[in-house]
Amino acid sequence: MAYITRYVPGTDKLRQNAFEVRSMDGLSSGVIHCDDLLALSQWTKHVTNNIMGLTNLQMKLYNRDLPSAEHITFMGWVCEGYLNPAQTGQDWVVRFLALRGSELYIFDKPPRDQQDWLKCPGVHSVYQTMFRVIRESENVDEKQHCFLIQTTAGTSHYLSVETRQELIRIESSWLRCVHQAVARLGSKTFRVKCDGHDSGLTLDWAMGFALYDSETKMFCWKYKFSQLKGSSDDNKSRLRLDFISADGTELHTRELECAALQPLLFCMHAFLTAKVAAVDPSFLRHHT
């Protein structure tokens, strides 16, 4: 599986009317120069479509031997930016990103067999990560079409792709993966304290938010995801949730303490993202 790039390797410098194709082992076609932007656009489009077709074929071959819950929904090349303390700006390294089942994989090279999947150095549950498209005004250098992946472990991956279409494809695949992962997960409970009582805050795909008191063995309150109107936290352990009452007349504020605040926030974000995706007509049209 090769990739095409218009950038000078390792940099954010875009070549003028030129591109190169590189193999998964780093071999280069050499820099191919075009007469004008139209010729460049046609060449890059044809090469990109060919690479995408071969990648999709490889995904189908992998998925034939995988249970449906572990199917690969995306594979593709990205570049990851790293701050270089020796100079201003970033160094860029080629990575291979895959979404398989409920997991995000970040490889140095495309996986060739099951052992490569098992040895992947960067694996994260999608419901414990956040995905955000970077606005053009936020770009750290001249690399375009950037996005950020953050994990509960505190790591961040600042990534870039060649075209806007590729970025849209990754975002769409990410939403689909999160939706499927959360629906399969069903519910997730976090240990919290509420008014000094040991409790469990459950995020449930069908029910919404529910607080269970460990002492009384009873639910203190329940709210649908759609009733959440706002939230805030101190980035340490305290979380405030604002819910609208079922009849829409009152605002209920619930304050909690959670030692695992970041995993809770990331998981909450995943559930809410999946719920929004589930009622988006365009998402339903393409993924059902």
Rank of each mutant, 00 (worst) to 15 (best):
A2T: 07
I4C: 04
T5N: 01
K13T: 14
V21N: 08
S23P: 05
S29E: 06
V31Y: 00
H33K: 13
C34I: 10
C34A: 04
D35N: 10
D36S: 11
L37M: 06
S41E: 14
W43K: 12
V47A: 03
N50F: 05
I51L: 15
G53D: 12
L57E: 14
L57I: 05
Y62F: 15
N63H: 04
L66G: 01
S68V: 13
H71T: 05
I72F: 03
F74R: 03
G76R: 04
V78M: 08
C79M: 09
E80C: 10
L83Q: 11
N84W: 00
P85Q: 06
A86K: 12
T88H: 13
V93W: 10
F96N: 06
L97F: 07
G101H: 01
G101K: 04
E103F: 11
L104T: 09
L104V: 08
D108W: 02
D108V: 08
R112M: 12
L118Y: 01
C120I: 08
C120V: 07
P121Y: 05
G122S: 15
G122T: 14
Q128K: 14
V133I: 15
E136L: 04
E138C: 00
N139G: 00
V140C: 11
Q144K: 14
H145D: 07
G154M: 07
L159G: 01
S160F: 04
V161E: 01
E162A: 08
E162Q: 15
E166C: 00
S172N: 12
W174Y: 15
L175Y: 09
H179R: 09
Q180G: 05
Q180F: 12
Q180D: 14
V182T: 10
G186C: 12
T189G: 01
F190D: 02
C194G: 06
H197W: 06
L203Q: 05
D204R: 12
M207E: 10
M207A: 12
F209G: 03
T216L: 05
M218F: 01
F219S: 06
F219R: 10
Y223S: 03
Q227R: 12
Q227D: 09
G230I: 03
G230W: 02
S231D: 07
S232I: 02
D234I: 07
K236H: 10
S237D: 13
R238W: 05
R238A: 13
R240N: 03
D242P: 00
D242V: 15
D242L: 15
F243L: 09
S245V: 06
E250Q: 15
L251F: 02
H252T: 10
E255V: 15
L256A: 06
E257D: 13
E257Y: 04
A259M: 07
L261N: 02
L261R: 02
L261C: 09
Q262I: 11
L265I: 11
M268A: 09
H269M: 09
H269D: 15
A270N: 06
L272S: 09
A274C: 10
V276P: 01
A278N: 15
D280Y: 00
P281K: 11
F283W: 04
L284I: 11
